[in-house]
Design a protein around this nucleic acid. Sequence first.
DNA 1: ATGATACTTAGCCTTATGGCTCAGCAATCA
DNA 2: TGATTGCTGAGCCATAAGGCTAAGTATCAT
Lengths: 114, 114
Amino acid sequence: MAQQSEQLDGIFQALADPTRRAVLGRLGRGPASISDLAKPFDMALPSFMKHIHFLEGSGLIQTRKEGRVRTCAIDKQRFAAIETWLSEQRALWEGRTDRLEQFVLKTQDKETQK
Amino acid sequence: MAQQSEQLDGIFQALADPTRRAVLGRLGRGPASISDLAKPFDMALPSFMKHIHFLEGSGLIQTRKEGRVRTCAIDKQRFAAIETWLSEQRALWEGRTDRLEQFVLKTQDKETQK
DNA sequence: ATGATACTTAGCCTTATGGCTCAGCAATCA
DNA sequence: TGATTGCTGAGCCATAAGGCTAAGTATCAT
């Protein structure tokens, strides 16, 4: 449970950056090398590498070096953790009145007063 | 598109913190005041407030002040953005060989050499 | 054997994050 | 009216994030 939470920390943090999401988008179409992945981004390679390391640390991708080329690929299993969390969250909503809070928030026309 | 990306930045960043995920878990069971929400956490109120503001900024919750009490509630719609992104990501995987990358990564027993 | 390629390491810089305290301020309660 | 409750604002602090450059190492090609 606790370790699951830390895992989610890393996963969501990894997803919170547009560069990293774009990398995942590219890897969704198949494995690629670091330099191939880096090409679309106007960023120094070491900066880009930090994103790769972050993604690998979160478990969302795996990498493997062969010769001088490091190949990256998505680890689909890790995405299941996101789905699980979302399901748990949604499970809470269901079987609940569900009219109340929309009412609570909408009646006073968005007047989020100080 | 671009603004969607920034929206996702905020949403995922908001989810990347255990306190904030716990707050969402609590709010999943229904609206609550700031001080009720803060009770379980061993944290000064202003610190806790930052999390609430972050959540509100991301759109995952909405708040409304009545008298001296501010009530918070989940905005379920925002969660759809996460599902959408996940679906898009999964759409990329599907209709693809799908054996290749697992092979690429698993053959060399995890020897992620330097 | 040289040179180019593909990372990798180290370190610097700026901004953001997540915690704190101390001091308000407005709404209720006694 | 005075005290308590429930936030709110300002500002400090330490660490992490995300960018950079410069220099290094290991392959691979010639």
